[in-house]
Design a protein around this nucleic acid. Sequence first.
DNA 1: GGAGTTGTCCAAAGCGCTTTGGGCGGGCGA
DNA 2: TCGCCCGCCCAAAGCGCTTTGGACAACTCC
Lengths: 343, 343
Amino acid sequence: MNLKTLALELGLSPTTVSRALNGYPEVSEATRRRVREAAEAANYHPNTQAKRLATGRAMAIGHIIPISDRHEIVNPVFADFIAGAGEVYARAGYDMVMTIVPDDSEARAYAELRSKGNVDGVLIHAPKVEDHRIAMLDTLGMPYVLHGRVSGSDSAFSWVDVNNKRAFERATNFLLDLGHRRIALINGIGEMDFARRRRRGYEAALKARDMAIDPALIVEGEMTEAQGHDAAREMLRWPDPPTAFLTASLLSAMGARRGIEEAGLVMGRDVSIVTHDDELGYLKNGTAEEPIFTATRSSVREAGRRCAALLIEQIESGDRSPRHELMEAVLVVGQSTGPVPTQ
Amino acid sequence: MNLKTLALELGLSPTTVSRALNGYPEVSEATRRRVREAAEAANYHPNTQAKRLATGRAMAIGHIIPISDRHEIVNPVFADFIAGAGEVYARAGYDMVMTIVPDDSEARAYAELRSKGNVDGVLIHAPKVEDHRIAMLDTLGMPYVLHGRVSGSDSAFSWVDVNNKRAFERATNFLLDLGHRRIALINGIGEMDFARRRRRGYEAALKARDMAIDPALIVEGEMTEAQGHDAAREMLRWPDPPTAFLTASLLSAMGARRGIEEAGLVMGRDVSIVTHDDELGYLKNGTAEEPIFTATRSSVREAGRRCAALLIEQIESGDRSPRHELMEAVLVVGQSTGPVPTQ
DNA sequence: GGAGTTGTCCAAAGCGCTTTGGGCGGGCGA
DNA sequence: TCGCCCGCCCAAAGCGCTTTGGACAACTCC
């Protein structure tokens, strides 16, 4: 079923049918209703490709996922972010098109997407501290929104981010207030912008109390269960072990907990853990009322929603002036923290 | 830059340029080279929408993800599956378009995708024991491939699946051979087809040795860390606790391990665990050489690749006859299993 | 009653590509 | 030398939609 035959059946011109369905005023309410009903009955939906060609709008948002380097797509937060963004796309009538590319052809992928014209804009994931994609996207002139920021050029583009620095500063202060002095940071990969900011927050809190920063207490790497476990096991063997861990993901926290328990210690009594919690769908920090880990909590799914909304607005309004949304994490207190044990 | 202006610049007709770029024989090698070079230099890529409209091929594969019900997209295996499929799509020049829909409009989403013509086929995730989507897709007449099967109608459509039954049968036998007699099954959600098959495998192994099936030893639900933990903690308090756990995911296994350790027991000595391992990118079972958990291992990412390849072949060949690929899981022995402890 | 306005509809062009159906000239066989 | 085929190229139609630029009748207003 296409426009022409539908028009033929109705005894109308394609023009009128198109206008009726798209809500243009040049058609009487009576015919509009008639057309709408006929379209419904025939389960008619305008052909996407034709519509796109005619309007010049792809009605699609691109996500480019490099495959090898940062394991981006297999990062557990990715799925939740996508879910949030996808909800918004669907409601606004946009397709979400995802392209998996080898790491070395990421740049080309953006250029191709642009020149093939199959998306109206792109969402950028997981920016590094210095991210080459920004410059490239600017020369391409394609609308984009970052999930996260790029240190140093924060205001030149639109982004949605959680206030990582403040979150980790607060978490550190929380532990300091409990009397902890040896606090380990089990962070994400150092070149990631979010990890850098979290580290800054941790360091800022220590500095504010005139405490030295011990590099040995900082571990950076992929946020897996093994990471948390290995770091905790290692550090707890030291003569002056940390009394608290600050971890960047729930998986790392789970690993750290295991390391603590392996050492015959009790989490929340002997050793404390504060973690960041992205509120992932399948990896919950207990329940909302009874969290297991004390955590800085911020929904990555909500971040996905906001990114998508921002990008769509930017595309539809044509307004390219950068906009920012900084989400604040909330600190929830669970059973994983307690006052520093007195020797 | 478009075909027309490129042709103009070259002093050729659009026809010839199109044919040169698409490898048709009616153009001399000399001009073909000239055209190719000019296209390269101008960074010309044919407009996707126009191409699609002209050829009638969307060059895209759809994935429809219901949002609420089964938490599908936030399921940790989803990302890995998508990564595998996406690789293949990209290589074959297909877009991956993902649609997030509220649960109650999933059926409509498929019909719309079909009538709007923006995909050439769809990949179906996470089939239930009885899945209404099959009938619907058949009436729509759109090519599709299932990741998994639907009990009872296995041969009517194309699918790629891991041999869940045999995997769990083998795992159960492995534990039985070690002398275990009280083996708990911590399974996925019961109405999922894969969970059903795994349970069948478990039950078949027990029956083969004339052992009774104790329903109390079977837990079905979302495969989270909490699920494994709660089940293990609960069961280990019983007067006749299980001596082994068979879990359906690494997360559940991690939870079970925690439950075991909380009870003051040692995994691999006092209580054994065998788990299924989907080889997720960010959730590894130790290393390939030194697995932590004894596991039935099968890459869900590879399953994604095969699904995609099968679907594309089906689309391009026009051959709708159903094809199946059954992947066998391999049993790897880690440190989580040992002979049943003598009282 | 005539001019202007308004409401409703349509014909046709155009989006950027592919593909059909030739056209033209040079080489080859008879 | 003639006719035919073949290699190379092009004009134009068509994919299914939107949108521009009217057409036509009915209505309003003086």
